[in-house]
């Protein structure tokens, strides 16, 4: 008996990689990739169906192909490519999820649903506890943008789980996904030559490496291993924390602090100039930071990330090339000054 896996959002790098990975699983028979636009990368021989999940056609696809596992990865913070708009992204996130879940509800063959969510659901506020667990209610609900989409998506998923208790539902709340080909908003932010920051705030950030993200999605989509449970809601993040200032130094990019009230203008200026999506919730993340507890991921889901947050960031930094102030150059400069001193020479 082989499984039929349907993956949404395969036109993105992460979706493409996941399709290629899941195909190698021994118990997977067929993999169907779905997206509104054809992917530019190859899908490793998986079938591609051009279907927009915002339209009811997706229901027919599910029924015709007798899909039993749905991996919903089309929940994104940034538009695909340069021409996409925020409105389209929001529609895909929210309406797409509604349609997909409606279709899943009508298809009896569906037995498992994995949703790629984000730790954005917690928001970020100064009144929040320093570390979020899966059960922490957010102190201030995200008012808009991707964070609100995610909150709504998770709401629909919970409704679906109530109506179809026979389906194993796994919601994975990913911290910022980074890696050589990640296209998360934070990855775009870190590729700016000079990083705008909020004056007087140094947020704590957590990262997940792409490889880990793929791996945990695979665990969620498969049968649970012994003594683990892969249905429920899980925070996914690498160990450890990086401060924004620290990340900028490791990346070798200078920071440019802005006073909090002016940051919003800078954000909208950058957005209208087409550099990146510097949305209000992104600014809040870069002001107050966000750290999540990952005990559930380890103990219940049985997943141990290969990369810690600093390692994931290092791998990302390596793929981006040196910034304006490479840490190696700075270190060499300090070493040279140290070498000028007699004591420094003695120590080395």
């Amino acid at each position: 008996m082989g499984k039929v896996v349907l993956v949404t959002g395969v036109a993105r790098q992460l979706g493409g990689r996941f399709v290629r990975r899941i195909q190698r699983e021994p118990d997977v028979d067929r993999v169907i990739g779905v997206d509104a636009v054809p992917p530019e990368h190859h899908l490793g021989g998986a079938e591609f169906l051009r279907a927009d999940i915002r339209h009811p056609t997706i229901g027919r696809v599910l029924a015709e192909q007798a899909v039993d596992t749905v991996v919903h990865m089309d929940v994104n913070g940034t538009p695909l490519g340069k021409r996409g708009s925020r409105a389209t992204v929001k529609e895909t996130n929210v309406i797409g999820t509604m349609q997909l879940l409606g279709a899943c509800q009508k298809t009896p063959s569906v037995k498992r649903l994995v949703v790629k969510s984000s730790t954005n659901v917690y928001g970020s506020a100064p009144r929040d506890p320093a570390i979020f667990t899966e059960t922490t209610p957010p102190k201030s609900l995200p008012s808009g943008g991707f964070a609100k989409d995610v909150v709504e998506v998770e709401g629909y998923v919970r409704g679906f789980a109530r109506r179809r208790p026979d389906v194993a539902v796994c919601v994975l709340r990913f911290a910022n996904i980074l890696g050589p080909c990640a296209d998360s908003p934070l990855a775009e932010y870190f590729s700016l030559p000079v990083l705008p920051t909020v004056l007087g705030f140094d947020p704590r950030l957590q990262f997940v490496h792409e490889d880990d993200a793929i791996e945990v999605l695979r665990i969620g989509a498969g049968e649970p291993a012994r003594s683990t449970l892969n249905s429920g809601t899980f925070n996914i993040a690498g160990d450890g924390v990086l401060l924004l200032s620290q990340a900028a130094r490791r990346l070798g990019r200078p920071t440019l602090p802005f006073f909090l009230p002016t940051v919003t203008w800078v954000g909208s200026a950058l957005r209208s100039a087409g550099f990146l999506d510097f949305s209000p919730e992104q600014i809040r993340l870069l002001t107050h930071g966000r750290v999540v507890e990952t005990t559930q991921m380890r103990d219940t889901l049985g997943f141990r990330p290969r990369y810690t947050s600093p390692e994931a960031f290092e791998d990302y930094a390596r793929s981006r090339g040196p910034g304006l102030l490479p840490p190696e150059t700075l270190a060499r400069t300090v070493d040279r000054i140290a070498a000028l001193m007699p004591a420094g020479r003695g120590q080395n």
Partner: peptide
Amino acid sequence: LNFLRRRITGEYEVDDFG
């Protein structure tokens, strides 16, 4: 200087609480 070197290259650790 050693301290400065670690600071400007970001090679230090912070815990989950910062």
